[in-house]
């Protein structure tokens, strides 16, 4: 005779035993299903809308940083080359290296700057041939375009110099104004440049020349003597001799 109630209990026991592994497996899968997304939520990699928003917010600064880094990578090297090519003897100051954007922008001016260096080095003649207004004949339209650009850029450069006090930039502006006959301006910028970096020979010469043009020849001579005593500059000596021999040069 069948003991049905006992058989039902045995069946229940069997069923539980049979389902238990699947139940455990399902529980494990569900647990993993909960844990893995929560783990992913904790990390930057996520799929949910909230985390996507967060990701977007995080992505923007990251992108900006990346851009800056790229700029630095692009800017630093050419700017240093520029400084070296421009003034091999001069040592760039900390301020100069600390402001890469300015240096980078100056790199765009290389075509204008480089021709200007060589005539100034040959100081005794003092014939800056490059600057647009000094050149008597404009042979082509391309030249006039260069000149206009330079005129346009000088105000921008002055603004930049106010902000970064780069001595190379100061020297450039001083030279520009001197070439354009703005002796007061060239005096001022040369003075500022000397205050920033006292080792820039050309800046001292422009300063002295500007003083001469402004009618302060004695002060120019004193300045040159002072500079020569400190630097033993041959260019400064030559110019001082010239002043002594031919005043008002």
């Amino acid at each position: 005779m069948l003991d049905v109630s006992k058989l039902e209990k045995r069946w229940l026991k069997y069923k539980i035993k049979k389902i238990l592994p699947y139940g455990l497996l399902l529980t494990a899968i569900v647990t993993l299903g909960i844990l893995i997304p929560s783990y992913l939520f904790d990390n930057p990699v996520t799929v949910s809308p909230a985390s996507q928003k967060k990701e977007r917010m995080q992505a923007k600064p990251a992108l900006a940083i990346a851009t800056v880094n790229n700029e630095e990578a692009m800017i630093l090297e050419p700017s240093m080359n520029f400084i070296e090519s421009m003034t091999p003897a001069s040592i760039p100051t900390a301020e100069a290296t600390a402001n890469p954007p300015v240096i980078s922008n100056k790199s765009r001016l290389i075509p204008n700057v480089i021709p200007a260096i060589s005539p100034i080095v040959q100081e005794p003649k003092i014939q800056p041939p490059v600057m647009p207004k000094v050149q008597p004949v404009v042979k082509g339209k391309s030249t006039s375009i260069t000149r206009d650009d330079a005129a346009f850029d000088i105000h921008e450069l002055e603004e930049r110099f106010k902000n970064n006090s780069n001595p190379n930039l100061g020297l450039y502006i001083a030279r520009y104004h001197y070439d354009h006959g703005n002796y007061t301006e060239s005096y001022n910028y040369a003075l500022k440049t000397n205050a920033i970096s006292s080792t820039m020979e050309e800046s001292w010469l422009i300063f002295a020349k500007s003083l001469v043009k402004l009618g302060k020849e004695d002060q120019a001579k004193k300045t040159l003597q002072l500079y020569i005593s400190n630097s033993n500059s041959q260019s400064a000596k030559n110019y001082l001799d010239t002043l002594n021999k031919e005043p008002s040069r």
Partner: peptide, 15 residues
């Protein structure tokens, strides 16, 4: 369920 119960009774299922 009853088939399985019968199997338990006959020893075909060990429960």
């Amino acid at each position: 369920k009853w088939i399985e119960m019968a199997a338990i009774h006959t020893g075909l299922i060990r429960a």
